[in-house]
Design a protein around this nucleic acid. Sequence first.
DNA 1: CAGGGTAGCT
DNA 2: AGCTACC
Length: 720
Amino acid sequence: MENSEDEEDENEWMNSFVDSSTHSPPAAAAAAASGPSISKTPVRAHRVILHFDLDCFYAQVEMIRNPALREVPLGIQQKYIIVTCNYVARERGVNKLMSVTDAKEKCPELVLVKGEDLTHYREMSYKMTDLLMSYCPLVERLGFDENFMDVTEMVEQRLAQIVKSEDFSFKGHVYNHPSADVKASNYPRLALGSHIAAELREAVHSKLGLTGCAGIATNKLLAKLVSGTFKPNQQTTLLPENISDIMGCLSSVRKVPGVGHQTAKRLQALGLVSVKDLQLCPLNDLAKELGSPTAQRLKNLALGVDDSAVTCTGAPQSLSDEDSFKKMSSTKEVSEKTQQLLSSLVGRMRKDGRQPQTFRLTIRKYTTTNKWFSRESRQCPIPNQIGQKISSGSSDDAVMQLLPLAMKLFYRMVDCGAPFHLTLINVCFSNLQTRAAAVTGKGSITSFFSQSTSPKKSQTVVSQCQCVDSSQGIDMDHQFGTDGLISQHNKQPATQSSSSSEAPLHGLRWKQNSAVIVENTRNASCSTAGCDPDETANAVTRLPPNVDPEVFKLLPEDIQKELLSPAYVSSLYSTSSSQSGTDVPSTSKNKLPETLTDSESISDTKDAANKLNSSNRATTVNHQGKAGTSAFPGEDVMEEGGLSFPRSSDCEFPGNVDPKVFSELPPDVQRELMSEWKQQKPILKTSSSKKPGKSLMTKDRKAPGKGSQANNLFKYFKPS
DNA sequence: CAGGGTAGCT
DNA sequence: AGCTACC
C-alpha cells in the first residue's frame, strides 16, 4: 500500500515536450514498489487517459432491443425532439436535438421510438461502466454514454513486460498523423493505451453489443476532444506534439469542455472568443473577471492542460424523475403528475436499496421573461417512517405519504390563489443512506459486519461458497477510527466468489443462496456448506443458507428484516473478505456468442482483466450457482500475471486496501466500495481526529452510516 | 433551448 | 436553493 505519489503535478504537457529529459519529474513512485519493475523510470511522467463515447447511445440500445430497427432511419423521441438518431437517419439529414417536425420533413420515413423512459438506457449504461471497471477500477462516468478511464497503471505493467525489440504500433488513428508514420516507440505509453482502448472497445462490443469511439491522450480534456475526431466506432490517439493542433482547431472557447454557455458569454464580454484568444489573454485580466482559480483553470484548458483526476463515479448520489409539458395549471393535475413521478421514483429507489433522507420537488414556471431554464425547488427531510416504506414497505403507501410532502413543498413555491403555469415537475431523492445505517440508530447491525480491530470479536460475513479469510487484520479501524461511525466499511474488500459476483447484479438472488455470517471466524473458514441453493429450504424466512437460524431469531425484527433486504447484500461484499479467487477454473471456450444474456455477460467480466492482460480470450461459462460453482475451491490462485492494480493514490483507496484484491472484485462491488470511500473522504479530511462532531452531519455528504455499502448497483439491472 | 437525467460549487 | 456544467 504504499502510497506514493501524488500526483497530478503533472504538467504532463511540459514533461512531454521536454522529452527526454532534463528534468526530473517528481519521481513519483517508482514503478514498482511491488513489481519487478524494470525501468527505474519515474512512473508518472504522464498519465494515459481513455475516453469512451458510445455511438448514438439511445438509438443503439433500441436497435439491440429490436434489431429490425438497424436497417431503418431511427430517431429517439423525447417530447417533440429527436434526442439522437442512428446513422441511417443521419445519412438522411437527421441530427441530434432536431425537432420532430424538422426531422420528419428531412426524412419522412424516419421511424420514431419514444425515449422518455430512461430505464433501458440507464441499465445499459451501467453495464458499460461495470464492464470497464472490471479491467481497471478507475472509471468516471460522464452522462450515460461516456466514461473516462485512467489506465496509467495498466500501461506501465505492459510496458514492463514488453520485449525490447518488440515492434508495435498504434491501434486506430493517430491525430494528425496521416497514416503510417507511426512511431510507437516514441510514445510507448500512448501506443499501449491505444491497444487497451481497442481491446476494451472489442470487449464492449462482444459482451454488450455496443459500438463506440475512444480517445487516448494524457489527460481527460484531450482524451475527450480527440475521441470525437473519427466518428462512428473508431478510436484516435493524441500525441503530445499535436496538442496545440487539436486545441487550435476548436472554433470557439465554447467548444472546450468545461466552458459552458455562461462562461463563454463572460469570456466574450472580455473579447475572448477563440481558443487562441483565451490562451493569450494575460492571466491577470482574466482573474479580475473570473477569479483567480477559474482564470487559471480556463487558461490551462485552452492550452490543453488538465490535471483533474479521473474520479471513480460510484453509485449515484441522487435519483430523480421528471416530466415536462406545455402547461399545467391546476393543483389537481400537479398532484396527479407528482404521484405518477413518485411511483416510478419510489420503484427505482427501492431497487437501489438505499434509503433517501431528503426529498426535493423542482418546478419550472412559465414566464415570458424567464421561460428558459429557471427552476425553483424546495426540499425537506423524509421522515424515517416514510423512508422505510420507500425501501422496504409498501411502495404505494410510500407514494401516498410522500405526496402530501410534495404538495407542501409545491405550495411553498406556488400561490394557488393566483393562476399559475408550470412546464415541468421533478421529484428527487437525495442524501441516500444505506439501509443498515438507516435502520440502526447507531450501528447495531453494523456490528455484525464489522471486522473489528480486535480479532476476538470479529465476525465475518461469509459469502456463499466461498472462502473467507478474515483477513488478517486489516485494521482499517485504526485509520478511520472510532466507534463505528465511519469505520466499518472500510473493510478490506475481499474477494468474491464467482457466484456471488453475479448475485448482486441480478438482484436479490442472495436470498436464495448467498451467505452470511456471524460467528467469529478468525480466519478463513471455507464454508462450502450452503453452497447449494436448495438449501434455501432453510426457510420460511428464506434465510441464507449459512445463517444460523438461532442467531437470526435473536435479532430484533427490524434487523432481521434488514438482513433480508437488498442493501444488506452489498454490505456482505463490502465487508466480507477472503482470498481470492481469481476465477479460476474457468472453462474456456473460443468465442462468445454475439448476444449474451445478462448473466453471461456480467459473469464474464470477472475474468475480464485476466483475459485482457494475458491475452487469453477464454470466457467462463457460468453455471448459475450449482454446487460446484466452480468457483471457489477455496483456492487462491491468484496469479497476477498481467493484472493491473491501481495504486491507492489513483483510486483514493483507503490506505490499507489492497489494490490487488480490489481489482479482483466484481465491478459492481468495486463501484460500491469506491463510492463509499469517496463519501467518507471528506470526513477524513475535515475531521482529522475522530470526533467529528457536527462536521459529520453537516457538510459531509452522507453520514456514512455505518452501515455498509454504498449501494446496490445491481438495481440497475433487471432481475433475471 | 429543446429532454431527462446527473454532479459540483457557492 | 440556485447556478453551472456535462451528456
